[in-house]
Computed example of a mutant assay.
Amino acid sequence: MDTASTSTPDAFTEAWLPGPDGTSFYTRTYASAPCPARAAVVFVHGFSGHCARYEWMHGEYAARGVTVFTFDQRSFGRTALDAEERARTPGALYGRTSWREQLGDIEWWVRHVKDRYPGLPVFLMGHSMGGALALAFVTRKSAPPSADAVEMLAGVVASSPFILRTKPTAWHVRWAGWLLSFVMPNLVLHTPINPNNLSHDPVKNEANSKDPRILHKGSLRCLDDMLGGGENLLRYDHKQWPKAMPLLILHGSADRITSPKASRDFFDKVEAEDKEYKVFEGGYHEVMREPNGMKEEYAEASTGWMLERAQNSGSRPVGDGSKL
């Protein structure tokens, strides 16, 4: 845990909640404290990650007035690995998922948060693969998600979104992967990541490499959807962005995993009335773990952006914002 955190060990509540098709999801809620909640955000983690990795950041959000709801995605983290819950959800095998399932899950949790916090504007935020899913969520021509679920959002925040890799996959490998995803969609491949490319904090990078809940692998369908979905965002899905939907993109300029240039290109193509691109000079992929004040700048930029739009929406702070 980051020693600079303003959160406390009991700053969140955890729960196993039922999701779409009976899948049981591990979830965390960081209720705004000590100040009243002024906004809520649904946070989506990245590929092979899990929600507990963002404890410092989410504690900071809660301390600034933003209640956070987050979850281990289908086929990742405790949702996939917890033995007891897997017994209840036998299909939740690690790495075996698809964009359609993931977008349906996000819609489920957006509705859950909107119902639980009816007095608060709700934002959608994701990091890396989760960042691309957040961008995709509001650019679909057909469900999931449904149009009314998109209209529930007060804005979208994409952190180091997986639109393109910094070093693109060779075209023949992409073509072969695409073809095989139809033939053997559930074949799981190992996808190692150099932990030293995550941030400039060696302690955090080592913790990532030793985390038993991080398994660098995914099914062919999962990988093809992630790669192809990001490419399509840049190619034509950006045209579907609702003009009235606010957008914030955060990216480190030295990201070695996901392309800052692709993020900027997507940003420039989106015809949103309210959009902002925040670059962190020299930052790697996980800016929220960067030392020397960068992670604090990241927390301030993202919460400040959400709270400004929450204020403009006319919402009023009410306790923790939840139903009694």
Rank of each mutant, 00 (worst) to 15 (best):
T23I: 11
S24E: 12
F25S: 06
F25C: 04
Y26A: 01
T27A: 07
A31R: 14
A31H: 12
P34L: 10
A37L: 00
R38N: 11
R38H: 06
R38P: 01
V41N: 01
V41I: 11
G46I: 01
S48D: 07
S48M: 15
G49V: 02
G49D: 12
A52I: 12
E55L: 11
W56E: 12
H58V: 06
H58F: 14
H58P: 03
G59V: 10
A62Y: 00
R64Y: 08
G65T: 02
F69K: 09
F69T: 09
F71R: 06
D72Q: 13
D72H: 07
D72G: 00
R74Q: 14
R74L: 15
S75A: 15
F76W: 05
F76H: 07
G77M: 05
T79L: 03
A83C: 08
A83V: 14
A83G: 11
E84I: 15
A87V: 11
A87S: 15
L93I: 14
L93E: 07
L93G: 07
G95T: 06
R96A: 06
S98M: 11
S98L: 07
W99I: 02
E101R: 11
I106E: 00
K114F: 08
D115H: 08
R116L: 08
R116W: 11
Y117N: 00
P118L: 04
L120R: 03
V122T: 12
L124W: 04
G126D: 05
G126I: 03
H127L: 12
G130K: 02
G131L: 03
G131W: 04
L133W: 04
A134H: 01
F137T: 13
F137Q: 02
V138H: 11
T139E: 01
T139M: 13
R140I: 08
K141H: 14
S142C: 08
A143F: 09
